[in-house]
Design a protein around this nucleic acid. Sequence first.
DNA 1: GCGGTGGGGGAATGCGCTTTCTGCCGCCCA
DNA 2: TGGGCGGCAGAAAGCGCATTCCCCCACCGC
Lengths: 368, 368
Amino acid sequence: MAVTLADVAARAGVSAATVSRVLNGNYPVAGSTRERVLRAVDDLDYVVNGHARALAAATSDLVGVLVNDVADPFFGLIASAVQGEISGGADQPSGLPAGAGKLAVVCNTGGSPEAELNYLTLLERQRAAGVVLTGGAVEGTGHSTAVAGRLARLAASGTRIVLCGRPPVPELADLPGAAADSVMTVAFDNRGGAQRLTEHLLALGHRTIGYVAGPAERSTTRHRLEGHRAALAEAGLAGSPAELDRLTVHGYYDRSSGYDAALELLRREPGLTAVVAANDTVALGVCAALRERGLRIPEDISVAGFDDLPFSVDAAPALTTVRIPLQEAGARAGRLVMGRQAPPPGGLATVRTELMVRASTAAPRKGA
Amino acid sequence: MAVTLADVAARAGVSAATVSRVLNGNYPVAGSTRERVLRAVDDLDYVVNGHARALAAATSDLVGVLVNDVADPFFGLIASAVQGEISGGADQPSGLPAGAGKLAVVCNTGGSPEAELNYLTLLERQRAAGVVLTGGAVEGTGHSTAVAGRLARLAASGTRIVLCGRPPVPELADLPGAAADSVMTVAFDNRGGAQRLTEHLLALGHRTIGYVAGPAERSTTRHRLEGHRAALAEAGLAGSPAELDRLTVHGYYDRSSGYDAALELLRREPGLTAVVAANDTVALGVCAALRERGLRIPEDISVAGFDDLPFSVDAAPALTTVRIPLQEAGARAGRLVMGRQAPPPGGLATVRTELMVRASTAAPRKGA
DNA sequence: GCGGTGGGGGAATGCGCTTTCTGCCGCCCA
DNA sequence: TGGGCGGCAGAAAGCGCATTCCCCCACCGC
């Protein structure tokens, strides 16, 4: 049915080996022969069988990209950037001949640890050339150990691993031989960003700041919360753990969680003058809830987000937030996973975050 | 290095064939034998080689999803939904045994026709089980013919094809044999939605309506524009082609295009009372430009978008737009491409769009 | 003119798995 | 008791390609 190498060889009057060599260009072939082969390939509309090639050459042109949810711009931006890098450099996905580009397999884990593990297995099955893990790690349970195990096996079999926006995995630091070098991390400075954000609020005069955190078991949640509390502590506002927890509500990284959390915070502390959200999406939910309660932003209450997603600047009002250069981070992860860029020292690179002060934060009202 | 079927067979004291049968469960194997094999698999941490399997069985667990840009929520939402369906049903991506789920290969074409073609070749190379093409088609050039050709070949080789948010390809209607049934379309009613949107504006009393269209050669752009003009014509406001074109500016589907286009429209027609944008993202850019010009929305000028992306409700003001059930459409496309749902009659399903009237549109000022 | 040399091409092997095609064994029925 | 049959398992033939090894044939130097 399908056209095979042998068909092309027959038509060009050469052996299959020669066709293979022409296609891969890794062996000298006379110009005239090459031309005949190429013409035959064209005539027959031949397309190599990737599986056969992968099997014979023990290589793969797949790179897995694990994300919590592609529909979330945070991950979409990263995935897009990774994809741009791995599919044949800066320009278009390479044509037939070159083919240095690889295919991105985007895996939606939905934030589920089991799904993450399953996808890792699927990728191992496909002998993926590389894997990019994005989003915060799930901590606490045995999950991180399980992931570490899978990653170790992947790394051992030559798969390059890049953690993007996720802390390094200690278990992977001391892998035998070259495997250790194939695990790299592009981390975000969540802690520092969160700290600067809260410092900004404190500088404006806020003293009663609510915090809408993400799911408790995620590293991203923890780091941002730590940064927030570090700022509080430095300002001498640490308070008791109970007090801190009273002004902290956990939820998911989505709009409705922000909405619910804002209501809850208001119930716990009507004197709130500012709310920091886990991310911009959550912040939008917070704003919606506050507005429905008749509060004006930022006159009555300030709101801040995180990530600086594209829509944040168009929100009402424009959101004060912390910018993470997601596309740059994703691009870098893509280059690393492709082996096109030297690994950073220690295999760890941390991308800076930047405070973006906009219209959703202001000094609290005098009365407050 | 890697553990193979033979290793497992040896450890279990059976032949490779038996191991294969246990793993695939497509042949009777005695319970005790199965158990021994399973234990060996577990002991050895065996993971099948997907390429070898694909080669031998002439099947693949890859499904390509072509999008213009994953970072764009429009495509992210669709991709996410498709992905959810193909990776093992409603729940998590199937574990090791079942394995009915497939992997989604998300391909960012960046809207480039060549990239689209290249990806199609790459997917053919991987003998993809299915391909979902999203986003409007590029019309006019020879591109659609080229795409039709590639799709025809894919379909002929058993790959299921689903066009999502893209008009049917006429050349593919009369493929020989079963191939015709493997091409399906989930279209969006862009035309109808656009028409209802403009009718809404007309009903409010607007008579001078600017239109910020997408790239001229895309089918989506054309359909929305047609709907818009159909509404105008029905209201007896058709005007001359020149007049229509004067109030139409083309750009990309991004924020900055909307920004620039709004300025241009204002220059051409200061008396504008409403602007319809190609999509919500563009509408945001339009709003930003208008606001900078000191115009209030909707008091001075109304703005409408399209798609009803998640952020639209949180924009300032909340955007009037046309909702496309993207996740449902994507999920349907996913089911179709997996063969889990019977193809719609004629292979064509059209998803309805719904007018969402919100705060960005209102009656024009009396003076205008 | 002869052995040497090296560029170019073919034959054959194997990658790891699926899948006939056989074949063995124990059981039932005549 | 013997022929058959059903339930299982093994042997082996590929799937389509990359690659190693080998060979052939100019062409060169002596």
